[in-house]
Every structure is written in C-alpha cells, then in structure tokens.
Nucleic acid binder design. Structure first.
Length: 433
RNA sequence: GCCCCUGUCGUCUAGCCCGGUCCAGGACAUCGCCCUUUCACGGCGGCAACACGGGUUCAAAUCCCGUCGGGGGCGCCA
C-alpha cells in the first residue's frame, strides 16, 4: 500500500514548534517508506485564518528542509462537499438535523478499538461519547468531520499527529464507518512540554519556528533536535541530518511519553552545526545579524566577515551571539568592558603598550606568528610573563578580556588598526569616547 | 467529575516487547582536572535515575495489580 500522510496546519498563527515537529515526523515517515507527504490547509475558521500566516508556515517548513508533494488541499473550498456528505448521512438515518446544524448519532453500547502505531491497542466505550456535530449552524464543518472527509478524499494511509488528538480518534473512526471508508492507521505522538512540565507556551520563550530562526538557530539544528525529541535512532549518535534520519526512522520506536523542551540542548546542537557549517552558508546570515545589531558593514566584505567568523565559530552557540562578541572588528569606538579601563589607565601598562606599538611597526607582513614571536621575545627581555603583555593589549585592541586568540585577532584587525588603537591607549586618549 | 495516554539521572534518552549479560549505557547541563594569553573548543574524570507499594519468579528496570505523580480530552475551536 502506498504511504500517504499529511500535515494539516491551521493558518491562524505562525508555525508552532510542536507543529513543526509533527510535520518533521510525518515527512520522515513518508520519505522513509517512499510515500507522499501532503499538505492540507485547515482554514475553516474564516475569521481567524489569514493568508500571511499560510505563507509564513510554508516558508518555515521549507526553511526546515521539509518539502511536500501535490497541491495543498484547502478546506475552505470544500464546504459544499462536507454538507453533501452530511446530508447523505442524514438520509441514511445516521445523522439528524438540530436547528441549522447536523449532528451525528453515536450508537451506544459499542466498543471502539484500534491499534495505535505508538501506543498499541486503545479502546473506548461509545457510552462515553456524545452525539457529534458534523455541520455547524453557520454551515461550516466541525473539525472531526472535515478531517475524516478530507483524509478519505486525499487517500491518507497513516495519520501521525499529536497526543491531544487521541480522544478524537474514536469519533473519527465512527465517521469512517458511517461514510463507508476504511480508517487509516493512527499514531499519536506525545506533545512537547515546557521546561516546567506544563504546556509549551509563550511564557517559556520561543514557541514559533520563526522566532528560533530569528534568534540565530540553524534549520538543520532545529530539525535534528526536534526529531530526537520522542525518537531515538537506537545507536549512540545524536548529530544526524534529516536525510540520515530518513534511512533509519521507525514510528514504532517512538517514545510514548511527553518530553520537555530543553533550550540548552537545542543550543548545543546549534553550536555543533555552526562548527561544521560552510563559511559560504554562514557569512550571509551573519551579515544580517551584524546589520540588525547596528554595525556599519560598508567597509567589510564577505572575506573579512569570514575571517572574523573563523575566529569565533567555536565560541558562539547561535548566530545572534556573534555581533556581541565581535564589535571591535567593525568599529573603533567599541565598548570597553567594566574593569577594563583600569588596565588601560595603568602607567606601567601604557609604557608596555607604547613600547610594543613601536616594535610592531616593523613587522611586515603582519602575521600572527610574527606578532606572537615579538611578544614573547619582548617579555623575555623584560623578564616578565607574556601574559603581562597580552592582557593589556587585548583590552586595548578589543575592549574585552575574553575572546579569540590575541595574535589571530591582531592579524585579522590589521597592522594599521592595531597600531592606531595601541597608540590611542599609550597616549591616554582612550577614554575620550 | 468522567474518559484516555503516560512515569529510567535536573533534561533528552538506551535498555523493557524476547526477565539474568544493568550495583543501569550515552548525550545536554553541572562540578573538577588537563590543554592554554583570556574565553571557548578539545581531552579526561566526578555527581546523578529504574516514582512508590504489593505480587509472580531461583532471579524484575524488564511480567501482573494497586497507589501516587505528569499530560491530554470531555466545544456548533482546530
């Protein structure tokens, strides 16, 4: 049997991280078995649905690396069909009209049972289920009904969805029966919870894919983190791409327990992907973040940003961390961290810096090895530790006590800039800014 | 209230289906050491869990029952 699954977003907001995970698992399932991954837009709520949300959702799916087959199905264009199907059920005596609405009659005394792909056998008594609305008074279809009509229409073979739909399943199975359709296989995956164990919501931080994108997370990292939340490849390996996951994905191996969202683990994944990413992929993204942080990139080309990137690549967890660490590479009037001023005002340090500035002049080309050699020789000659030279110079040149290797920084900054900054401190003019 | 799902380190998980190889393995976080011009990376090591109580069994994280805990649902929302 051809595997056909679907992801059915409602365009009433941005793509939620939990929905994204549902989409990823459906995609994984479809690709794993050579099936089709379809999209259905559940826009029956005309008031809350907006075209811009739909565009955002599709954009975010593509960004994550999820592609789909066939044209998306829009529920708003199928109202006539839902009504007709409901009328058929009324004619067959399986449903009845109540006011303007159409309700489904639930036969009492039955047991509805099915085998969940993730949870195993699950059963309900129809006595616990009341009659279900098929068509609302305003003529629009109720969720469970349009869902079944469309899944039947689209030839959906497997439904992988959130745990919160588990109690919709017996109702939907009843509809399949009434409509003369064979129910698909169902698999209910546990929801993602916030760090405190409650439902993941805005107060836990980002809930939409778009926010993570904006915060500087790479799509590969987000996808990787998401499909490892609830599923494990079994082997002790965690960094794997969607393509690698496709080869070994197995729904039956999915966990039946809800998992908490852990931003720290996501950050770790992101850092790992940043370490491995190609510079050509990172540089444009970094440029955007630098611009957003207010940097003037007029005199910085991609090659320069690339050199700075290589100095900070292992130090950032998100692309957004970058601007805050590299200010000194993009402007002379960078901020000097708290406590740094004292280091620069120290007369002894100024003397050391002035001395270094003079000696650095003769270094050409201004490479980090040559600069380091000079620092070490100078320290030895003066009988001090290299660190006593390095720390004040790092502060003079970058305004920070932390960062990449000083000599590499100096090389990237260039001789001219370095000397300008050293002289500025040597002459005690650093505090005018 | 009723119905359903679920319970291994702080977190994500492996193991559970096919009891013994598990005084429970990995990863994130955390702590320490090493590397080192700082920070980070990397390397090494530490702390840390089978929710609880009963069974079954020679033997249970693994099977059964109960309790407690967590989540979801019970909409003319989707």
């Amino acid at each position: 049997m051809m595997v056909r699954v679907r992801f059915a977003p409602s365009p009433t907001g941005f793509l939620h991280i939990g929905s994204a995970r549902t989409a990823v698992f459906n995609w994984l399932f479809a690709r794993r078995y050579g099936g089709r991954f379809l999209l259905r837009i559940e826009d029956t709520d005309q008031k809350r649905s907006e075209a811009r949300y739909l565009e955002e959702i599709l954009k975010d799916l593509r960004w994550l690396g999820i592609d789909w087959d066939e044209e998306p199905v829009f529920q708003s264009r199928r109202f006539d069909i839902y009504r007709a199907k409901a009328e058929d059920l009324v004619a067959a005596g399986k449903a009845y009209r109540e006011g303007e609405a159409v309700l489904f009659r639930v036969e009492k005394g039955r047991t509805i049972e099915y085998k969940d792909m993730i949870h195993g056998p699950i059963a309900w008594q129809t006595d616990d289920i009341k009659d279900q609305v098929l068509i609302k008074s305003d003529g629009s279809p109720a969720y469970n009904f349009s869902c079944v009509v469309d899944d039947g229409f689209m030839g959906i073979s497997h439904i992988l969805r959130g745990d919160d739909h588990i109690s919709n399943t017996p109702k939907q199975i009843l509809f399949y029966e009434a409509l003369g359709l064979r129910p698909p296989e169902f698999g209910h995956m546990p929801l993602i919870l916030g760090p405190d164990g409650s439902k993941l919501s805005k107060r836990h931080g980002g809930v939409s894919v778009e926010e993570y994108k904006r915060e500087g997370f790479l799509p590969q990292a987000l996808a990787n983190y998401l499909f490892l939340l609830g599923w494990s490849p079994g082997e002790e390996r965690e960094i794997l791409s969607l393509e690698e996951a496709v080869k070994i994905f197995d729904v039956a191996a999915m966990n039946a327990v809800q998992a908490k969202f852990d931003i720290q683990k996501l950050s770790w994944f992101n850092a790992e992907y940043i370490k491995k990413a190609g510079a050509d992929e990172l540089i444009p993204l970094l440029g955007i973040h630098l611009l957003e942080a207010g940097f003037d990139l007029a005199s910085s080309d991609d090659a320069y940003i690339g050199r700075v990137l290589e100095l900070y690549r292992v130090r950032i967890k998100t692309l957004r961390d970058f601007p805050a660490m590299v200010e000194c590479f993009f402007r002379d009037d960078f901020a000097v961290e708290e406590g740094g001023r004292a280091l620069l005002d120290d007369p002894g340090n100024r003397e050391l810096i002035a001395d270094l500035a003079v000696r650095l002049e003769s270094i050409d080309p201004f490479g980090h090895e040559a600069v380091e050699k000079l620092f070490r020789e100078r320290a030895a000659e003066r009988g001090i530790k290299p660190a006593q030279l390095i720390h004040p110079v790092r502060m003079a040149v970058s305004g920070r006590s932390k960062g990449a290797g000083l000599f590499e920084m100096m090389e990237v900054l260039g001789k001219e800039t370095v000397l300008r900054r050293l002289r500025r401190v040597a002459h005690g003019s650093a505090d005018k800014a």
